[in-house]
């Protein structure tokens, strides 16, 4: 009986093990090995070990690029937080049925490919787009505003694409707060502002960090948004990696950037676990 259940346990783990090993771990290992090799003029790989790919990264150009990518990802995350908090607090006060409907609506955009949705923004916001034409027609502006093909465009695209990833974990955290805890806060003389910062935020710390991670990490890597809404001029780490693999054909260097990114991301996840762990000690939700 026990043997049988153990067999079943391993059997049920098989698909996910296959997925993780063959589709994530092995390619990552390949990239990792690749990052220590060199390339020749035509993009071929030479089997000479080197650290130069990593050392090349320590260059002001790349460091600036990293900082800029993190800055854009950070700003996008912050904007997502600012939009998501009021939204989820509002939704959590609704009836169960209404909650379900609204949260389903949040996920509806996922039914359309994000690339196509990004093109949609171009149609709306380019100089001859709907918004600019309309604003000019009603004489609010005299010449078109550059909404896209700049940092604003990239941040807009990131926030739009990634907002649901902030809303979902934050909603499940906020929804779990007992209504009477919020009421107790008001009852004890607290204002809405203080209740938010002293009660709601600390009690949803894990959800907040979880959502931030889900927004921040993709925001570093979503090269197509920077390509489309940044007009191809503004590069992020994601674009740099893409270019190394597809245009410059310098796979080892691209691999080195990727591995650096993986390490940074891993560090962030570690911080998350630390916060999560502390929350468990407190017996938070």
């Amino acid at each position: 009986m026990k043997k049988e259940s153990k067999f079943f346990k391993y059997l049920s783990l098989l698909p996910i093990s296959f997925y993780v090993i063959v589709l994530i771990f092995l390619p990552l290992l390949y990239i990792f090995c690749l990052s220590f090799l060199t390339t020749d003029y035509y993009g071929g790989i030479n089997n000479t070990l080197t650290l130069s790919n990593y050392l090349n990264l320590i260059d002001l150009v790349y460091i600036k690029l990293f900082i800029k990518s993190f800055l854009i990802a950070g700003i996008s995350t912050f904007i997502c937080i600012c939009i998501a908090y009021p939204f989820v607090i509002f939704v959590s006060q609704k009836k169960k049925m209404t909650k379900n409907i609204i949260m389903t609506l949040v996920m509806v955009p996922f039914l359309t490919n994000s690339l196509i949705r990004t093109y949609g923004w171009i149609v709306l916001l380019r100089k001859t787009g709907i918004v600019n034409t309309f604003l000019q027609d009603i004489n609010v502006i005299s010449s078109p505003i550059s909404f896209i093909y700049n940092d604003f465009g990239i941040i807009l695209g990131m926030v739009y694409t990634l907002l649901p990833f902030m809303i979902l974990p934050l909603f499940s955290a906020v929804d779990k707060i007992d209504k009477s805890v919020i009421e107790a806060s008001y009852d004890l003389g607290s204002t809405s502002f203080k209740t938010f910062f002293k009660i709601i935020v600390p009690q949803t710390k894990v959800g907040l960090f979880n959502g931030s991670l889900m927004v921040f990490i993709p925001a570093i890597g979503y090269f197509f948004i920077a390509d489309l809404l940044g007009g191809g001029k503004l590069m992020l780490i994601g674009n740099l990696i893409k270019n190394q693999f597809l245009s410059a054909r310098n796979w080892p260097f691209g691999a080195a950037i990727s591995i650096s990114l993986v390490l940074i991301t891993f560090g962030l996840v570690k911080i998350y676990q630390k916060i999560g762990g502390k929350m468990d000690d407190l017996g938070g939700f």
């Binding site: 007992d178 107790a184 009660i199």
Partner: peptide, 11 residues
């Protein structure tokens, strides 16, 4: 008010 479930701030 003393609430039925105490409503203490768990954090």
């Amino acid at each position: 008010t003393i609430f039925q479930n105490y409503a203490l701030f768990s954090h």
